[in-house]
């Protein structure tokens, strides 16, 4: 998916729900802060989205432009109506949202996660695909390990889980350095 596709999804979601503002979570919210990222970040054909002020309308998005819909069949990408609880995010993430509002969104607003917050959501989810996404964010310099580690205390998870998350970020950073990537923040 590219930025134009995401703008199309925001526009279509607005038409379906008659809502004005949407939040994009999941990997494709990277297209907010980084409109043209390397391909490794945008292989997904799916965008997770929910209406900011009408969360219950997320199911209508799924039904109309979700996986297997006519919209999907026509364009090759689709939306997934989710809820805000889908992403586990550091405190204050709302104040760091990145706004998309263009002719492509028909003037409607899509709020994407800041890249650091996206990293934390993916790092705590820790599925195979999340690990690859997070390591690529560090590798390309979009996220500094030290900055990510400083956000761990703000994650709404237990202390023990915070410890594991910190260790995970350090482990990924070390693995990248071992592969010869120049990662700043030598103290991590």
């Amino acid at each position: 998916m590219n930025r134009e596709d995401l703008e199309h999804i925001i526009r279509a979601a607005a038409d379906i729900t008659n809502e004005y503002e949407f939040v994009v979570v999941g990997s494709q919210s990277i297209l907010g802060p980084i409109p043209n990222p390397p391909a490794v970040f945008t292989m997904s054909a799916e965008a997770d989205i929910y209406p900011l002020n009408a969360i219950d309308k997320a199911d209508a998005i799924d039904a109309a432009i979700g996986e297997g819909s006519r919209f999907h069949e026509t364009y090759g990408y689709y939306a997934q109506g989710v809820g805000p609880e889908t992403a586990c995010l550091p405190a204050g993430w709302q104040s760091r949202l990145q706004r998309i509002q263009t002719a492509g969104t028909n003037g409607r607003v899509g709020y994407c996660l800041d890249v650091g917050d996206l990293f934390m959501a993916k790092a705590v989810a820790d599925r195979d695909k999340d690990r690859i996404f997070c390591m690529a964010l560090i590798q390309y310099g979009y996220v500094l390990p030290r900055a990510a580690i400083s956000l761990v205390d703000d994650m709404p998870i237990e202390k023990s889980a915070q410890g594991r998350l910190r260790a995970r970020i350090k482990r990924w950073t070390k693995a990248l350095r071992d592969r010869g990537h120049a990662i700043p923040d030598d103290d991590t």
């Binding site: 297997g68 999907h72 069949e73 195979d128 695909k129």
Partner: peptide, 18 residues
């Protein structure tokens, strides 16, 4: 449930035939 299988499902034409 592998990463590759999940990636493939996201780019799949199969659900569109339903």
């Amino acid at each position: 449930r592998t990463r590759r299988a999940q990636e493939l499902r996201q780019a799949s034409p199969l659900p569109t035939v339903l």
